[in-house]
Simulated assay, not measured.
Amino acid sequence: MNRRPDHLTDREEQILRCIRRWIEDTGEGPSVRQLAHAVGMRSRHRSPITWPTWNARAR
Rank of each mutant, 00 (worst) to 15 (best):
M1G: 12
N2T: 06
N2W: 09
N2D: 12
R4P: 03
P5C: 10
P5R: 14
P5N: 12
P5T: 08
P5K: 11
D6P: 06
D6M: 07
D6L: 10
H7G: 11
H7D: 15
L8S: 01
T9I: 04
T9W: 02
D10Q: 09
D10F: 02
R11S: 06
R11L: 12
E12H: 09
E13W: 13
E13H: 07
Q14E: 14
Q14W: 04
I15A: 09
I15N: 01
I15S: 02
I15C: 06
L16D: 10
L16I: 11
R17L: 15
R17F: 12
C18S: 14
C18H: 09
I19Y: 02
I19M: 10
I19T: 05
I19A: 09
I19E: 05
I19K: 07
W22H: 15
I23D: 04
I23H: 04
I23E: 07
E24A: 13
E24I: 05
E24K: 11
E24Y: 05
E24M: 06
E24T: 10
D25Y: 00
D25N: 12
G27Q: 02
E28T: 14
E28W: 10
S31A: 07
S31I: 05
S31K: 08
S31C: 05
V32W: 03
R33I: 11
R33F: 10
R33N: 14
R33Q: 13
Q34T: 10
Q34V: 09
Q34M: 11
L35G: 05
A36S: 05
H37I: 05
A38Q: 03
V39N: 01
V39H: 02
V39P: 01
G40A: 00
M41D: 07
M41P: 00
M41R: 08
M41G: 00
R42G: 03
S43R: 03
S43P: 00
R44F: 15
R44N: 09
H45I: 08
H45N: 12
R46E: 12
R46A: 12
R46F: 11
S47C: 11
S47N: 08
S47A: 10
P48K: 02
P48V: 04
P48Q: 04
I49D: 14
I49W: 14
I49Q: 14
I49N: 13
T50R: 14
W51M: 10
P52D: 04
P52F: 00
T53G: 09
T53F: 06
T53Q: 11
T53W: 06
T53S: 13
W54M: 08
N55R: 15
N55Y: 15
A56H: 06
A58C: 05
A58S: 06
R59V: 00
R59F: 00
R59T: 00
